[in-house]
Design a protein around this nucleic acid. Sequence first.
DNA 1: TTGTATGCGTTATCAA
DNA 2: TTGATAACGCATACAA
Lengths: 369, 369
Amino acid sequence: MSSSKKQPTDSSKDKPNQSPVSMADLARELGVSTTTISRALSDHFSIGPAMKQKVLKLAKKYNYQPNHMASALRKGKSKLLGVIVPYIEGRFFAKVVHGIETAATKAGYNVIICQSNEDVANERRNLESLLSAQVAGVMVSLSRTTHEFHHFDKLRDRGVPLVFFDRVIEGNNVNAVLLDDREGGYLATRHLLTQGCQRIAHLAGPQHLNIYRNRLQGYFDALREAGQPADERLVRYTDMTQAQSAEATRALLALESPPDAVFAAGDYSALGAMQEARRQGLCVPTDMAIAGFSNEAFTVVAEPTITTVDQHCEEMGQATVRLLLELIGVGSNAFIPRQLSLRPELLVRDSSLREVDETQPLATAAAQP
Amino acid sequence: MSSSKKQPTDSSKDKPNQSPVSMADLARELGVSTTTISRALSDHFSIGPAMKQKVLKLAKKYNYQPNHMASALRKGKSKLLGVIVPYIEGRFFAKVVHGIETAATKAGYNVIICQSNEDVANERRNLESLLSAQVAGVMVSLSRTTHEFHHFDKLRDRGVPLVFFDRVIEGNNVNAVLLDDREGGYLATRHLLTQGCQRIAHLAGPQHLNIYRNRLQGYFDALREAGQPADERLVRYTDMTQAQSAEATRALLALESPPDAVFAAGDYSALGAMQEARRQGLCVPTDMAIAGFSNEAFTVVAEPTITTVDQHCEEMGQATVRLLLELIGVGSNAFIPRQLSLRPELLVRDSSLREVDETQPLATAAAQP
DNA sequence: TTGTATGCGTTATCAA
DNA sequence: TTGATAACGCATACAA
């Protein structure tokens, strides 16, 4: 399986399969100085085109790979970027990190990933770790237990640019990439309205987190736009778990005029609502339309599939890298903190789609109990 | 919010809040050589205890952070580890990576993560990237499209240790950390047997992948041990998707003597089987018990919750790091390739648990349609 | 256009 | 036990 066609040529063509080739090696072979090599490889202006070609050719022949550490040591700027996320398991951060890695790689950077595990103490340790690795910049999504931000000062002191994403120090002058959660809540609610829903309930999340506040705001905005009065009894505050959301839904259904739709600020919450509704014999979406938030993996696995809001996670990662590289470029002296806001996308699925009932009545509904 | 109790002391106690403190700075302050500083900090044997204390104290006062790049450049060994995974989204690799990161951090290493996106071309690029970042070692889980392994030779040439995990070059002399998939298949099948299942079917995965071959083997082993003849009609080969698995299940249920249990080699496959069974009016687990593999997140969200096999992903990550650090320690000259095999764990959930029926007949079954 | 010299921060070698 | 020196690989100010 392994000894096929590539073995015999091993010693015939190139034998420089050894330890790393340095600029000095190339210089010696060409009888020039390392300065010339350096200039040719970094496309310096004061280099002869002929010489440049010679160097490049030789570099390719020997498969020269620049030593990032040496370069970084000399320049004071490495080709490493640091990321701190609360955790990597779960869809959201995994996808954001993927976006980060893609964008960073394209720009010739490597990415060091740290997880705070939602613990500010780890966050501090991660920062130290990244600093001693001499990263050129840092991207952070705050741990849930971070209420004090002095550990980030050290970055500024050392001139290492910092960009937050998703979870951000609020009201401060920081660089950040965010999702427009209000827009997401607005889109989901408006969709339910266009499906003909008359009484739309909202399962809201903890209001000390801006994302949930904004999703609630979007819900209100959509209702107002449609001229529907907001009924406070239709808004329930939960911790976004499946269990609490099911409970809240039970309470909603016990109202004298129960809702005919639920917009949940999270997918697990939407799932809890859906399970409770079906448990009570209601048909989703006919009797009760449902929309969630986050596009978790299970939303396409559930029955029926769940309408949700996608956060364009990868795009967030890429935008974060773009902003960070910009700051690295300018030297981070020009302190004009910027906030980018990304638009979410509504994904309409079966849990909210009533239109089908009109075109082809009870087509799929008949197949299910 | 930010200007509280830490501001006034800023200039009183320590003002070294500046650019990175180097050994030279400490040396100057103490009137000794950098050599002495280096020795004190690295706990060299030829250092006076008094001097050592003085240095350590000063280092703490100035919050000295070693420059990993300089150290790496000098020693030829960095504090960076490289990881290449097919992708990071999805539960398995995310958890393995978490385990890797935890173990690496504990040992004072940072981790650079690369994703091949199941493309061998990316895998090659990732390797180059890691090499130029001067990583001290590399951990790889092969891309699905990797059938040729010469790009890994370069690591050996440069003396950079390599450890595979989960997806491995087979039959070769490599260091690897694996899961005992046979054991997993065995445990799941045996569990179904103890639940009283008489005819257990198996939804098998692509047999060119060792993991699926081994799970199938475990299935056979359990049956043989129980004295049940293996019925070839009960083994169906699918691509492990929900759709194909549902189809295969339909075929199984159409047999003259249909199965009363299904062990699927993957959770999505198990889900497809479960959905098909219920669609045909069967009750899970009473009429048809089901077990999957991988402990995907949705297995606890599905109704009923799905019995599955957990792969101890984090442990795999930690074991991989441990093995790698060992190789880095010995210099990777001692070429005694080792294969570690981890034991999986069976997680029994509702989709296979028939015991409840005997103790409290149709307790929960009544609540559901 | 090319070369010389120097230093980034750390550590190994040798000498004191 | 401590210090002086050189070197890791690269990039820049300066000289030629």
